[in-house]
């Protein structure tokens, strides 16, 4: 059974095992490698994408539930929030190893789209599902605030 969805604005038809997590469709089938595997159980947020505008942990989202959905990965990010976030991220050198940062950026962009001027609590709530083992959290917080000013 083929499943049809939209990824970064392009229509995609896939006939993989319908239980396949969206993460592995994005990576293995589409070779969009910005979205990362970290835990496989929605604990770390490295696999965060946007589905119909909402953040989603793609590692626990079977692709069969994505029929007709609009998926955005870091490769397809656009808009003023996205460019402000990525500019802020590089502006203060948030990344260390960088592995979790696609997920961090996806969560931050989704936050700013909903809450243009997030408080510390807003940031905690939106971002605490994204683990960074390098603990770049000080700069993540600052970069979100810098991006909010920019938007």
């Amino acid at each position: 059974m083929a499943i049809e969805l939209t990824v970064n604005g392009k229509s995609v038809k896939t006939d993989v095992d319908p239980d396949t997590p969206l993460l592995w469709v994005i990576r293995d089938e589409m070779k969009l490698t910005g979205t990362k595997f970290g835990c496989g159980m929605a604990q770390c947020g490295a696999c965060t994408v946007h589905v119909n505008g909402e953040t989603r942990r793609s590692c626990v989202t079977p692709v069969k539930f994505m029929e007709g959905s609009e998926v955005t990965t870091i490769e397809g990010l656009e808009g003023k929030e996205a460019s402000a976030v990525q500019k802020a991220w590089t502006g203060i050198d948030v990344p260390q190893c960088g592995y979790c940062q696609s997920g961090q950026v996806m969560s931050a962009v989704a936050l700013l789209k909903k809450v243009p001027n997030p408080s510390d609590e807003d940031i905690d709530t939106a971002m605490n599902g994204n683990i960074c083992r390098c603990a770049t959290y000080v700069r993540i917080r600052q970069a979100i605030k810098n991006a909010a000013k920019e938007v």
Binding site: K31, K36, Q86, W89, D93, V94, P95, G98, S102
Partner: peptide, 21 residues
């Protein structure tokens, strides 16, 4: 100085082992 790898690590383009296909 700005770090030399920040841009690619903020845009998902840094290539890790897992990203090799």
């Amino acid at each position: 100085r700005p770090k030399i790898d920040s841009l690619r690590k903020s845009t998902g383009t840094a290539e890790f082992t897992i990203d090799l296909y």
